[in-house]
Amino acid sequence: MILHKSNSLTFFTPKESNSLGAIFLDTGISAGFPSPAEDFKEERLSLDKELVKNKEATFYARVSGQSMIGAGLDDNDLLVIDRSLEPSNNKIAVCFLDGEFTVKRLKVDNNEVWLQPENPNYPIIKITEDNDFIIWGIVTNVIKKVY
């Protein structure tokens, strides 16, 4: 269910699932040479249980744009956002700034706040008292398509 769509983010709420989860092979997947004859244990894994720590305060948002590519947030990635977490320096946050949602890295120093993109083609934004500004939530995970 889409909650809100802006130029840079589209918000969704997590949907409750009665599924047992996907099969999880608890063996570690080698990115080098495979280990011959390795035994593995099959379990069920729920991504909701892995990614969502506070169900009532968690939302998903799809990224639109390239301002955070240096942090590994690419266009069309799905963010997991927890609104119950305290914002702090260097966290990646979803912010409401002057009527638009944006995702940036928080920089806090001497009671001053900047929103730092992770792409040199975008400017750092200094927050002033003239801005309509709210830190909406903290990004805890990113879900990517790799095809």
Rank of each mutant, 00 (worst) to 15 (best):
I2W: 09
I2E: 15
L3K: 11
H4Y: 12
K5T: 15
K5S: 15
S6Q: 03
S6L: 05
S6W: 02
N7F: 15
S8Y: 14
L9E: 01
L9F: 04
L9P: 00
L9R: 00
F11R: 01
P14T: 06
P14E: 08
E16L: 14
E16P: 03
N18Y: 06
S19Q: 04
S19T: 15
L20D: 15
G21R: 02
G21P: 01
G21E: 06
A22K: 14
I23G: 03
F24N: 03
F24A: 04
D26R: 11
T27R: 13
G28S: 12
I29F: 13
I29M: 14
S30H: 09
S30K: 09
S30C: 14
A31V: 10
A31S: 15
G32V: 08
F33L: 14
F33P: 01
F33N: 10
P34V: 11
P36D: 07
P36R: 07
A37Y: 11
E38S: 12
D39K: 12
D39Y: 07
K41I: 15
K41W: 05
K41Q: 10
K41S: 12
E43P: 00
R44L: 12
R44D: 06
S46K: 07
S46V: 05
K49S: 11
K49V: 04
V52F: 07
V52C: 06
V52L: 10
N54S: 12
K55S: 06
E56F: 09
A57H: 08
A57I: 08
F59P: 00
F59G: 00
F59V: 13
Y60S: 01
Y60R: 03
Q66S: 14
S67C: 12
S67I: 02
M68C: 07
I69Y: 01
I69N: 07
G70P: 02
A71F: 02
A71Y: 05
G72L: 05
G72N: 08
D74M: 12
D75W: 06
D75V: 12
D77L: 10
L78F: 05
L79N: 02
V80K: 01
V80S: 02
I81R: 02
D82L: 09
R83C: 06
S84V: 08
L85E: 09
E86P: 06
E86Y: 09
N90Y: 04
I92W: 00
I92D: 00
I92E: 00
A93Q: 04
V94E: 03
V94L: 02
C95W: 01
F96R: 09
F96H: 11
G99N: 09
G99S: 07
V103T: 13
R105E: 06
L106W: 02
K107M: 07
N110E: 13
N110A: 10
E112S: 12
E112K: 14
V113W: 00
L115S: 00
L115M: 07
Q116D: 08
Q116H: 14
P117A: 11
P117I: 03
E118A: 13
N119M: 10
N119F: 06
P123Y: 13
I124N: 10
I125A: 05
I125H: 02
I125F: 04
K126V: 03
I127Y: 01
I127S: 03
I127D: 01
I127K: 04
E129A: 13
N131R: 02
W136A: 02
I138L: 09
N141K: 10
N141G: 05
I143D: 10
K144D: 03
K144L: 07
K144E: 10
K145T: 08
